[in-house]
Nucleic acid binder design. Structure first.
Length: 266
DNA sequence: GAGTATGTTATATG
DNA sequence: GCATATAACATACT
């Protein structure tokens, strides 16, 4: 499910679903999802409170109450669904927040990579997670300045949430594809304008995904995401075949013709 | 059974 | 400190 656009869609769902409802009870079905908060404290902190603001930085969901912030990270397979007590509980429900008006917010997570934490403030979460600025909010200038400091493959830098937060494996590939940059190019080899352009591509891709509800089939045919598999025909016009390599431990699909590797700084 | 998966983090190594 | 590689977490699906 979740990279920035998917998390943003969840954020909006939560915002329209539970903003302003008083919390009656919190049920923790999987203790290991909790991150630096005890079950007792989490329940105490939330009971009787109201979510008054639902924010997001990168892939981190931030549900603010009068007294603190519930931080939800969806991991690889997490989701948050809003319903009522008559609905069937999702199969992989890990945490349930019941509201006084009968509504219910359920954090579900099949593979259990997600995490739920609590802090007094958003700043505390940012510091604890070492979260860089959100990719949709940060300026291209700042993005370029932060990225260029690293002497690592640009793809690894894009995935490093402390540099800039929100980009995941799929959108990293798409942004690099659109920008025509080989994923293994060292970030420090890229020029300021190349990095700015890369940032624009990343933002455009994610914005576009948001407008189609993250349904990849509704993305333009020119997008790599439509057919992100080794051996597929490049969705550009060059007829090349897509290649697959590993960068920073992650599967990386790119077009060898459009994204050439450069071995010296520009 | 083998291989793969949208994420993060700890650990070891250079 | 920086960068890389690897494993670990856990489970479904092809």
């Amino acid at each position: 499910m979740p990279e920035l656009p998917e998390v943003e869609l969840v954020r909006r769902r939560i915002e329209t679903g539970v903003l302003g409802s008083r919390i009656e009870e919190v049920q923790i079905l999987d203790l290991k999802r909790l991150d630096s908060v005890s079950p007792e404290r989490l329940k105490d902190e939330l009971k009787g409170k109201t979510f008054i603001k639902v924010g997001r930085i990168g892939k981190q969901l931030l549900l603010g109450t009068e007294a603190g912030v519930l931080a939800i990270h969806l991991g690889l397979t997490g989701d948050v669904v809003i319903g009522t007590s008559v609905d069937r509980l999702p199969r992989f429900a890990r945490l349930i927040v019941r509201f006084e008006d009968g509504r219910r917010m359920v954090f579900e997570d099949m593979r259990r990579f997600g995490r739920v934490g609590f802090a007094r403030s958003v700043d505390e979460i940012v510091a604890r997670k070492r979260l860089g600025p959100d990719v949709m909010v940060v300026s291209s200038r700042t993005f370029a300045e932060r990225a260029r400091r690293h002497k690592r493959a640009i793809k690894s830098v894009l995935l490093d949430q402390s540099v800039v937060s929100g980009i995941g494996n799929l959108y990293a590939d798409e942004a690099l594809f659109q920008a025509g940059i080989h994923p293994q190019t060292l970030a420090s080899f890229l020029s300021e304008s190349e990095l700015r352009n890369l940032h624009r591509c990343a933002k455009r891709v994610m914005g576009r995904s948001l407008t189609v509800g993250s349904d990849f089939d509704l993305l333009p045919r020119t997008y790599l995401l439509r057919n992100r598999r080794e051996g597929e025909v490049c969705p550009g016009t060059n007829g090349a075949r897509l290649a697959s390599i590993t960068v920073g431990g992650r599967t990386t699909v790119y077009c060898p013709r459009k994204q050439r590797l450069r071995r010296a700084p520009r």
